[in-house]
């Protein structure tokens, strides 16, 4: 009797604990199953919506498709968008299911992660905005400089493109809280360094070359001033 009691004791204890935790596990499984179904439905509906609003055309227009092709990404923008939404839902479902277990460590982890999410999304938005702003500004500048027949139009617009990109990447990283302050200082040092290096190279190292270049420029400007077109375009 004593033996059987001592043997059944752990089983009873295990069973009692299992009884206590089982509803929670069932809850987790249910949340996961429903979550997966919901994620799949969301992905399917999103696909239909993107087709209706011609999302692919929009991505072509804003150059996103080209940018992805250049980066050797073989999936279409709408596929990527669907996947992002799908995995985001799955991720939220997992967090939700874990919080159902009500384990303190998991709770702390999930809450700190949830608190970090807005920062992450803002950083992504900053990067996307920066990418398009850099592209738009550089292209506008390139066209204006070519129309003004500035010879170094392409390098100037490229430089502006990368400056804006670096600035926004720095802002994005700053938003994520990685090496706060350091990134901004690095950017400032980089920018200052580039300007200083250019000034030194042009002013000291290439003094004669700079002189020749400016003289040549002035002569060209003088030459084209002497020979303006006299017809009207309209």
């Amino acid at each position: 009797m004593t033996l059987s009691l001592s043997l059944s004791g752990p089983f009873i204890l295990f069973w009692e604990r299992l009884e206590g935790i089982a509803p929670k596990i069932l809850e987790v499984i249910l949340i996961l199953v429903l979550g997966f179904i919901f994620a799949w439905v969301a992905k399917f509906l999103l696909g239909r919506l993107l087709k209706i609003i011609r999302f692919e055309d929009l991505c072509d227009r804003i150059g996103l498709s080209t940018a992805l092709a250049r980066a050797n990404v073989r999936r279409s923008p709408s596929d990527i968008f669907k996947l992002i939404v799908y995995w985001l839902v799955i991720f939220l479902v997992i967090i939700l299911s874990l919080s159902a277990l009500n384990v303190q460590v998991v709770n702390e982890l999930t809450s700190s992660f949830v608190l970090y999410l807005p920062r992450f999304f803002i950083a992504v938005l900053v990067l996307i905005f920066g990418y398009f702003l850099a592209k738009f500004t550089a292209r506008a500048l390139l066209i204006a400089l070519v129309n003004a027949q500035v010879k170094s139009a392409k390098p100037i617009s490229l430089a502006v493109h990368f400056m804006i990109l670096i600035l926004f990447v720095t802002m994005g990283i700053e938003q994520l809280g990685i090496a706060k302050g350091v990134m901004m200082i690095t950017y400032a040092i980089l920018l200052g360094g580039v300007v200083l290096a250019l000034a030194l190279a042009f002013g000291l190292g290439g003094r004669d070359m700079a002189k020749d270049f400016l003289e040549k420029k002035a002569k060209t400007a003088e030459k084209s001033k002497k020979k303006p077109d006299e017809f009207t375009h309209i």
Binding site: Q149, S224, K227, P228, D229, E230, F231
Partner: peptide
Amino acid sequence: VKVNLERM
């Protein structure tokens, strides 16, 4: 009228 062909 004068036309600057080179510039164009």
